[in-house]
Design a protein around this nucleic acid. Structure first.
Lengths: 162, 162
DNA sequence: GTCAGTGCAAACTTTTTGCAACTAC
DNA sequence: GTAGTTGCAAAAAGTTTGCACTGAC
């Protein structure tokens, strides 16, 4: 689907959501949705705030960002992650299901897809629970850090952990 | 394995870890490890602080709790989760692998086990990545909330979302 | 016209940091 | 003795809240 199509569709979904829940259709809310769907990958509130301040016609307050993102999560248009210290968000409509690899050393987050895994998770029998979505975080050492560690071992460099 | 055995074993693992990394073996550190291995399920720093203040011989500062828990995570004796607002921790030695169901409405976190799922995740081929551990969070509606919602619908009670 | 929504600043919560005192080694 | 560790308090970071103003309905 083309970017503009996606933006139109999510705007429509959002409109329906707002109507259904008796919320007002403010320009701020649509500007936020639009900006989020212009961002690839993860972002935090601060990044979103900067992007909107710099590139978009709208400047909205952080309070409004926090408020609106809750609506978007409920409308299933945004997913919230909790990596590292701050909350990270990402658009969720028309995105391929993906999983997350997180390097415990450098903190780098990489997405990957795996249909078998996806299938296994989505078809897990759950007792008294109605799955809507899920997050899989795989922790370990990324290739870069592993190589760096091996090199350091060879050179007998010992970085003390904090 | 018996509780006391587990405590002894983790103390030994921690000692080895501290030695290997040139850290001191302070009584605070062992008291924290011991307390953590007395707690079943998840806890946050504040809870741990209270438990130690109330029930244990040792009172340690929050700063020390934060410092020590990082060591314990690195020693693979504790796992960190990010549910809801604050970081949650749990002991990880000698625990069965489990996954987490999180109700998006009431926030309740339930653990469940599923060997097929566990196997599928652990045997996923990863490119340039060395898996050490993982967390799977499944979001949805728990049975209680689902029943409550149905009941509300029937009675035509409309709680507006915030 | 009304009240939900917004912006701003203050408050709050969780975590980190700086520093003096302490203690494991 | 010395440097790593601790406790405390202050600071930082992220998020929520109270309130007056604005604008969607």
């Amino acid at each position: 689907m083309e970017v503009q199509n996606v933006k139109d569709t999510v705007r429509q979904i959002f409109t329906e959501y707002l109507n259904a829940h008796g919320h007002r259709k403010t320009p701020e809310r649509y500007a936020i949705l639009d900006t989020i769907y212009s961002i690839d990958g993860h972002f935090d509130i601060d990044t979103l705030y900067s992007v909107m301040a710099d590139h978009e016609k709208f400047r909205v307050s952080r309070a409004t960002l926090y408020n609106t993102i809750i609506l978007l999560i409920n409308a299933r248009l945004v997913i919230k992650h909790l990596f590292g210290n701050s909350s990270q968000y990402e658009k969720s409509y028309n995105r391929d299901t993906h999983h997350h690899q997180i390097c415990t050393q450098c903190g780098k987050v990489t997405e990957f897809q795996n249909e078998d895994l996806q299938h296994a998770i989505e078809h897990t029998k759950l007792r008294r629970f109605n799955l809507t979505h899920y997050s899989l975080y795989i922790y370990g050492l990324c290739g870069k850090c592993e190589r760096a560690n091996k090199k350091n071992l060879k050179n007998n460099i010992h970085k003390k952990e904090k």
